[in-house]
Structures are given as C-alpha cells and as structure tokens.
C-alpha cells in the first residue's frame, strides 16, 4: 500500500469503527464515547498548536469556554436557535483566539505559557464576575426541548452520538488535511527551527497566528457542541484545569500525531473515571501521569508507535 492509502485506511478505519461502535456499546460507554469524541476534538485543536507548531499554551480553556458561552449565552438571553447559537460560539472563538494571538505571539517560550495562562485566568474570573448572566460556578442548564437542531433532538443519546461523531470526523479530517498541506509543513518547520523558516522567506508570525486561530476555533467548536449536546454551561470549563486537560491528553496520546489526541483522551477519560470511583482525589492520577510522561515518554503513545512501528504516521 502506498503511504497515502495507508494513512487514509487508518484514519478512515478509526472513524468507521467509532461509527459502528454505537450499535454494540452498552449505554454507559455509549454516553462516555460521545463525550470523549467531543473532548478529543478539543484535544485535536490543542494539538495543532502544541504538537505541530510547538507553541505550548496553558490557556486553551479560554477558547473552549468562548465557544461554550458564545453558544449558551445567545440561547439563554437572546433566545437564539441552536444553529445560529453554534455560529455565535464559533465567532466568539475566532475573535478571542485572534485577539489573544495578536498579543501573546509577541512573546515566546516560557513567557508565552504564562501570558496564555494569565489571559485564560482573567477570562475565567470575568465569567465569575458577570455571575448575573453566566450564573458563575453553578452554571446553567439548557432545556432539552430547546436543543433541537434541524428537527434532530440532540438530547436523545443516539443523535447525540451522531453529532459528536460528526464533529470529531470534521476535526480529525481537517487536521489530517491541514498538516499535509504546505501551510502545515511550514508549521512543523517553525516547531523545529523558527529562525530557519524566517530565513527561507516565510513569515513565522502570520503562520503562528493562523495556527492559533484554527486551533482556537476548533477548541471553541468543541466547547459549543459540548454545551449543546450535554445541555450545560458552567465556569468550571473555563478554569485552569480545563487548560491542563488537553495538554495532558495530547502528551499522553502523542503530540504532533493526528491520532494522538483521540488515543490520549480515551485513555485519560477512563483512567480518571476509574480513579474517581475509588477516591475523591482522582486528579492525583492526572498529576502522576503528567510527571511520568515528561520523565519517561515525552513522545506519548502514538509517538512511540511512530518511532517503533509505523514511521509513516502523520
């Protein structure tokens, strides 16, 4: 098989398996997998910036929350229908990521990490500050009767699974497409050596900004869909923890691989799910995995697979 055919077979195969899985899975795992696919879309967005462009952001919850609140607030206070509300979420994601990019990309390395962390923290606090509209930490529920998109009832488990699968497929395929385009190749080159890219005549700032906006928009799309499918928006989704999660998922699955974010989200979700059955201190698992990964496996699971088995993995 040619390289191209292998790549298509592997990623198409994963999507087909996920599509088929809903007919055999028990209800509990069925619901979990829908959630995992939405969160994996968030991780895919994060991976584009961290894994492919080499920019480590500690503030992606800002984009996730921008999408979620852009959608939820316009439904709650402007009486918007789901479709325009989703578009409002996407628009909020684009605007916030472009603004953050224009500011934060003036810095690099450790300063970039702290700047993104601080702006995301400011975003989280702003949501708490305007508690009158956002209901702060408590959050608000979007009634099931209003979550009907083009006649499809998104509160129903089957259609919810389909919607999550659709979002995941779009994010996965567009990442795959993007990283094999010249634009994606320049991003990888920036990760490896920014000065050399500049010397070759590319504008690193514009490429990084593009990567940040695409990544932020993907994260916002995941946030908006998450809110719509599960009918809830709360300030927790804007907290530091939700900035750390995609980092954890991507590191575990393998930064800079297209499949890594899904694999990492799947493993981490079930790990935390198991741990929270045993103790309330389930975030201990997240801490231990983070330290262990940075120490022993900075490549992550799919990174190891690429290194040992399939060198052609995108």
């Amino acid at each position: 098989m040619s390289r191209r055919a292998r790549i298509l077979a592997l990623h198409g195969g994963l999507l087909a398996v996920l599509f088929a899985a809903q007919f055999v899975l028990p209800a509990y795992h069925h619901g979990n997998l829908a959630r995992i696919m939405v969160l994996a879309s968030y991780a895919l967005g994060y991976n584009l910036l961290f894994g492919y462009t080499g920019l480590l952001s500690l503030g992606h919850a800002l984009f996730f929350a921008a999408g979620m609140y852009g959608m939820a607030l316009s439904m709650q206070h402007l009486e918007a229908a789901p479709a325009p509300a989703l578009l409002a979420g996407l628009a909020a994601g684009i605007a916030v990521s472009a603004l953050l990019g224009l500011l934060a990309l003036r810095t690099a390395g450790v300063a970039f990490m702290i700047v993104t962390l601080m702006f995301a923290q400011a975003g989280h606090l702003t949501i708490l500050y305007f508690g009158e509209w956002t209901r702060g930490d408590e959050g608000f529920v979007i009634a099931a009767t209003r979550r009907v998109l083009w006649g499809i009832d998104l509160a129903d488990p089957v259609s919810r699974y389909f919607a999550a699968w659709g979002l995941f497929a779009v994010c996965l395929l567009s990442t795959l497409w993007l990283v094999r385009r010249p634009f994606g190749k320049v991003l990888i080159a920036i990760r490896e050596n920014e000065e050399r890219v500049r010397m070759l005549g590319y504008d690193p700032f514009l490429h990084k900004l593009g990567a940040l906006v695409v990544s932020g928009t993907m994260s916002a799309a995941a946030g908006a869909v998450y809110g719509l499918l599960f009918g809830y928006a709360g300030a927790t989704f804007a907290s530091v923890q939700y900035s750390i999660f995609p980092l954890l998922w991507v590191l575990l699955g393998g930064a800079g691989t297209v499949l890594g974010p899904f694999v990492g989200t799947l493993f981490m979700f079930y790990l935390i799910d198991l741990a929270s059955g045993v103790t309330t201190a389930y975030m201990l698992i997240a801490g231990v995995v983070l330290v262990a990964l940075t120490l022993f496996a900075p490549q992550g699971l799919m990174g190891e697979v690429r290194r040992r088995l399939w060198g052609w993995l995108p």
Binding site: L56, L247, M283, L284, V291
Partner: peptide, 19 residues
C-alpha cells in the same frame, strides 16, 4: 528544560494537592 519543567511542576501541583 524550561517547557518540560513547567509541565512536570503542573503534575507536581496535582500530586501534592491531591495527596
């Protein structure tokens, strides 16, 4: 390494806090 130590200290944060 600056970036990897940040990730490791985030892990350390959760370990200490949760313990």
């Amino acid at each position: 390494d600056p970036e990897r130590t940040i990730v490791a200290t985030i892990g350390l944060l959760y370990i200490i806090q949760q313990l």
